[in-house]
């Protein structure tokens, strides 16, 4: 497989991180923020895979592959938990705006 230079994949990974960062710092909707976190995790995983390919001489290093798979599993668990929180918060407070959820009180 003739591949693009490695820098292109890195640029994609970093742009995923940047988009995630942008959403985290600007958007107020909790769902969007969770999606942004997922995006950032994807970007980080991607960087891992690229590096694994780089040191693996044609194949992705198996250790790194397993780490990335674990990471993806954890990310999905985090997302599931976070969305469960969102549902609870929405039921309780009737809002998805994090600016309105500033107080750690009930």
């Amino acid at each position: 497989m003739t591949s693009l230079p490695i820098q292109v994949y890195f640029a994609l990974s970093i742009s995923l991180l940047a988009v995630g960062f942008y959403i985290l710092s600007v958007k107020r909707n909790i769902l969007r923020i969770i999606l942004a976190i997922e995006l950032m995790i994807t970007g980080a995983n991607m960087a891992f895979v690229i590096l694994g390919y780089w040191i693996g001489n044609g194949v992705v290093d198996p250790l790194i592959r397993s780490i990335v798979i674990i990471s993806m599993g954890i990310a999905s668990i985090v997302a599931a938990l976070a969305i469960a929180f969102v549902i609870l918060i929405f039921n309780k407070f009737g809002t998805r705006d994090i600016r309105k959820l500033r107080k750690l009180r009930w």
Partner: peptide, 9 residues
């Protein structure tokens, strides 16, 4: 501030 957005910044 306690705002997640600002903390990210």
């Amino acid at each position: 501030t306690g705002l997640a957005n600002v903390n990210i910044l």
